[in-house]
Design a protein around this nucleic acid. Sequence first.
RNA 1: GGCCGGGUAGCUCAGUUGGUAGAGCAGAGGACUGAAAAUCCUUGUGUCGGCGGUUCAAAUCCGUCUUCGGCCA
Length: 316
Amino acid sequence: MYPEFAPRHQKIIFVTGSTASGKSQWAIELAKKYNGSIVNIDSIQFYEKLIIGSAAPTEIEKIQTPHYLYNYVPAPNEMTAGEFLRDFYKLLERKDLQFPLFVVGGTGFYIQALEKGMYNIPEVSQELKQQIENEITKFGNEKAYNELIEFDPESKIHINDAYRIGRALEIKRAFGKTMFQLKSDFEKNNKFNLKLPYLKIGKLLNKEILFKNVTARTHKMLSAGLIQEVEPLLNQGLHQWAPLQSVGYFEVVQYLQNKMPKENLNAEIIQSTMQLIKKQKTWFKRDDTILWSDESVLIEKQIEQKIDLFLNESKI
RNA sequence: GGCCGGGUAGCUCAGUUGGUAGAGCAGAGGACUGAAAAUCCUUGUGUCGGCGGUUCAAAUCCGUCUUCGGCCA
């Protein structure tokens, strides 16, 4: 599943950046220019039927350039970083795949997962996951936190972070390991990092421009039928479905459940989107290997020269 | 014009029998290895509408002015 090596002509370019930065457009231009393909690495655009609110590519765009891993996960399935890796490597086996691959998305966690690999542990059973989740809701964080700290006194997880406590307990009970042990095992022998040559580029716009983009795009989503996109999903009882907790979808669910007046919807979505952008920026700060462009065409061109070099070099 | 409420952090509001203020949200910063567009952490000095007064001490009591609601003329 994880290839140990790959032919040298198989090159990858990550195109990242915050929401509403124009990275998808840029990626499409590049894919056309270099006759490559687009691969999704946005955590919401994986899902079937989440088209408008996730700003997924249009049908026309998909016809013009090969797009992969978009809108294919049906509800109530939920995507995970690990599942994404499996799907990605399965995609690489396709004979008709046109390289270079432009892997596009703003989900830093997934980019990291693909680039560095993930801790090598099997999937935890649904039963155990459910059991731990139930315990935490029933007995509260403290009991779970105490179990964790007793087992792993070094744990840095905050007592309020029920999600991470739960995950750490899953690892403890299923494999008897601490998160730190997983990490050091992983660092000693990481077979799962990305073996193909790759380059990372991104779009970083200033806040004022992003706010304008977000405002325009939120308006567009709502008039394109975002509410109508969510309604049938709610009718199927999917209000707990993870992607419906995401920016834009969450607010529409609130509205449809009469927890928010319609006149607030637009502003609330804009606000959440700006908060998301802020978190994405914070994530990207940890990675100083991304070549950043802004709204200036000049820098974009300079980066494209680097892409030329990267694609032409035949190292190894 | 009269009566009753309100005017406290950018917003919505708490402030017990007077001891110079605090929550949520927003904003700012950060963490992050299988939900990640999620989850979590850190961060609150503001003429307590103005001016007088009572008091050792007033957002809190009194007077007055101002302003926004509502009701009655």
